[in-house]
Design a protein around this nucleic acid. Sequence first.
DNA 1: ACAGGTTCTTCACAAGCTCGTCACGACTCA
DNA 2: TGAGTCGTGACGAGCTTGTGAAGAACCTGT
Lengths: 121, 121
Amino acid sequence: MSAIARPSSEVIEVGPLQILPDEHLARAQGRVLVLSIRELRLLTELARRVDRIMPRDELFRLVWGREMRAGDRSVDVYVRKLRVKLEEALPGWRFIHTHFGFGYRLAAEPAHNVNERFTTG
Amino acid sequence: MSAIARPSSEVIEVGPLQILPDEHLARAQGRVLVLSIRELRLLTELARRVDRIMPRDELFRLVWGREMRAGDRSVDVYVRKLRVKLEEALPGWRFIHTHFGFGYRLAAEPAHNVNERFTTG
DNA sequence: ACAGGTTCTTCACAAGCTCGTCACGACTCA
DNA sequence: TGAGTCGTGACGAGCTTGTGAAGAACCTGT
């Protein structure tokens, strides 16, 4: 079954995290992360732009495929869900960083950096 | 291969400091500096005029977009906030220099430059 | 179609952050 | 030394983000 490799298969690596959008899955240190479709797509879009600050409305457009209505908190809610699952799979790491007033940024960073004033890029 | 082409994104370099106004972020040796919008804009306007002494009222006009009222200390306060974050990210460097009676000047300089007026080395 | 289990969306409230401003003390220059 | 300039810590208002919960929508197997 796994004999045929698709050449166009995208693989995104962010620290210890591996994301395979075309396979509909993500891995953390070999283990498979169980994510819903929305969660995976949000993670993917963030991962495709590692270390860049992504505004909510742009993320929404990329993931939901339509314009975000003012006041829609969906992105925040899914960021929360991702954070919980990532924390569970990789305690000791932090991935989704909030940039107040701007949006979110994905980047692998050791957790105990309590300072959070600057981060590894 | 998922390279995202970005149209002429401004990048300002000042010593070990890299400022990307369009990305809403600044980097210090690869690490992302977490700045608020005011802090980033003030840093940007200073950086666009590296090594030039900028009067407070002009900085205020550039960053806040309106005339500065006499006695307004906002610029001073935000210079302070920037100094703290820059010092934390890049100890051993000094960036924002006070010119008594004139204003501020941005320039990357190694610390313990005792010659400098107005700071406790 | 039905039951059982997931996922999605939306709310409401809690928690956290930024901004502008003050007050007071330290400092500079004449 | 005096007058004016700058550094710095603190605070409240207002806005942004975090978080848990509840019901709607959806999916799967029978």
